[in-house]
Design a protein around this nucleic acid. Structure first.
Length: 495
RNA sequence: GGUUCUGUGGCCGAGUGGCUAGGCAGAGCUCUGCAAAAGCUCGUACAGCAGUUCGAAUCUGCUCGGAACCUCCA
């Protein structure tokens, strides 16, 4: 295993060594299902889907846990406690759980569209209230939390005295304690930096549970700690999420779990960067979100057209997950064409039969071999999907050259060709999770197309170009491209 | 204000000391009845200034942009 992962906690690439050989525990922060997912949300789920697929490809047995946050949290700390879920439920005249169900379903639909593998376990916050209460009790027993008016707060100052609070997010504890910002409702806390583990519910709160401290609901960060501990243990391998969750969410998770389990919870922290629009992070508060439903339908002022989920997937994989990625219709269009190019070459590659044993063009053979072997090398280097794709595009040129006869198939050795075919399929489909997006794959449709192409071929032989062009032009108008190949065959595809 | 990150050709993006990814768009050529597709070739980019070095997009400093977090947030 020579996989290197950039660990946000240590700020460097580290050799990945599973805690339990052969097994990997991975936790990824899932969606808050009080609203629709947008393009920005797609990034972590696609990124970590590829991480999951790659680890599995490496022969590791991965337990992938991704939560559903279906219990409302605060709109803003210290302010009038507004349960996000219950608030919107009233506006939309829906039961809270009805709303949660609706957006959960929509989320699952989007994940399916993206061809994301389902997590091993997808626990809900509301389904783990008991575990969360138990965890809070342990933290209180350890002396790192205190109760005030039915709410429970984590004592950050005390924790920071003996632990490195702020290491993950690069925060300085003294700065946190001296925030000048004035917020209401802070008086319950002993210190500004303290965060809620349990919050007492105001009478208007619909979502509420009985606890040792009265009726209320869990704090912002405890659910992930509780569920990760339950399903992955006191220490697990990978915790993923967006960079914006580093503080306070993940920092607090570390503190809670460390006190409760007497061990730092995570070995490798992974954070994906943001998707931006005109350089600004896509987010509710910026009012610049493009929902996934809008993305797929093209129904948004910033979109020039609809974009297939696979196009979005490729778009995301063409950059490194730790770099910001700027959205633009033009960039998506480029990805759409790139996907077609890649897939066309892949289809051609699949049709190649074995050539001679020895490579006629050893230089090319070596080059191809190198590029194919780099797939793994690049992925092992902190999941450099963009570099693997770059190689695939270069290989596409080679494949097309062979198809067009510019390069003889015998240029490559049988072993190289076979490896190329195999690895292309593995990386494109199994690891990157990409799929063909052209429609018209039914047998009936193919039969009709064969008939038309046959008729056209006959008219061409008779030099009846009026008929042959009529067929091609009308098919083109229908969005079906007909291409006369070098070898006399005719290919077509639907866009 | 504090902390951290970042600035690459028309657009999106790899790239961390020498070997100038890749995709899209653009130009030319080849193939073709024409077309489409494909192949080949081309533009020769690294915010600015100064420094380190035989050599910097890549390291250091400064200047100017931009961003994230510090409050729910992927």
């Amino acid at each position: 295993m020579s996989l290197k992962i950039y660990n946000s906690y240590t700020r460097q690439k580290e050799l990945f060594e599973p805690i339990t050989p052969g097994h990997v525990g991975m936790y990824v922060c899932g969606p808050t299902v009080s609203g629709e997912s947008h393009l920005g949300h797609a990034r972590p789920y696609i990124t970590f889907d590829v991480v999951y697929r790659y680890l599995t490809h490496k022969g590791l047995k991965v337990r992938y846990v991704r939560n559903i946050t279906d219990a409302g949290h605060f709109e803003e700390e210290g302010r009038e406690a507004e349960d996000k879920v219950s608030k919107k439920a009233i506006l939309e005249k829906l039961e809270p759980m009805e709303l949660v169900q609706k957006y959960t379903n929509l989320f699952h639909w989007a994940m399916l569209e993206f061809n994301n593998v389902e997590p091993s376990i997808e626990p809900t916050a509301t389904g783990h209230i008991v575990e969360q209460i138990e965890m809070i009790k342990k933290i209180m027993d350890a002396g790192y939390a205190y109760e005030k008016s039915g709410s429970v707060y984590f004592d950050v100052k005390k924790y920071a005295a003996t632990h490195d609070y702020g290491k993950l997010s690069g925060r300085v504890i003294d700065d946190l304690l001296e925030t000048t910002r004035e917020l209401e409702g802070q008086e319950e806390k002993r210190d500004r930096a303290d965060f809620a583990l349990w919050k007492s519910a105001a009478p208007e709160h619909i979502m509420r549970w009985v606890s040792p401290w009265g009726e209320g609901f869990p704090g912002w960060h405890i659910e992930c700690s509780a569920m990760a501990t339950k399903y992955l243990g006191a220490e697990f391998d990978i915790h993923g999420g967006g960079m914006d969750l580093q503080f306070p969410h993940h920092e607090s998770e570390i503190a809670q779990s460390t006190i409760c389990n007497h061990h730092a919870p995570v070995k490798y922290w992974m954070h994906n960067n943001m998707i931006t629009i005109n350089g600004k992070k896509m987010g509710k508060s910026y009012n610049n979100v493009i929902k996934l439903t809008e993305m797929f339908s093209g129904n948004h002022p910033l979109l020039t057209q609809a974009f297939h989920p696979m196009v979005v997937r490729l778009f995301i994989l063409q950059s490194h997950y730790r770099s910001p990625l700027d959205f633009g219709s033009e960039a998506l269009v480029a990805s759409e064409k790139a996907l077609k190019r890649l897939w066309d070459a892949y289809e051609v590659l699949k049709t190649f039969s074995q050539a001679g044993n020895a490579a006629m063009d050893s230089e090319l053979d070596t080059k191809v071999l190198k590029m194919v072997n780099e797939f793994e090398e690049f992925m092992d280097d902190d999941f450099s999907t963009a570099k693997v794709l770059a190689n695939m595009f270069e290989l596409s040129s080679v494949i097309n050259s062979i198809k067009d006869g510019h390069v003889k198939k015998e240029a490559l050795s049988a072993a190289t060709l076979s490896l190329l075919q195999q690895q292309f399929a593995v990386y494109l489909e199994d690891i990157f999770g990409l799929k063909n997006i052209s429609s018209g794959n039914s047998d009936t449709f193919k039969g009709v197309m064969e008939l038309l192409i046959d008729i056209r071929k006959e008219s061409k032989l008779k030099k009846d170009y009026i008929t042959s062009d009529k067929i091609r032009n009308q098919l083109t108008a229908l969005g079906i491209a007909v291409k006369d190949e070098k070898d006399g065959t005719v290919s077509w595809d639907v866009n």
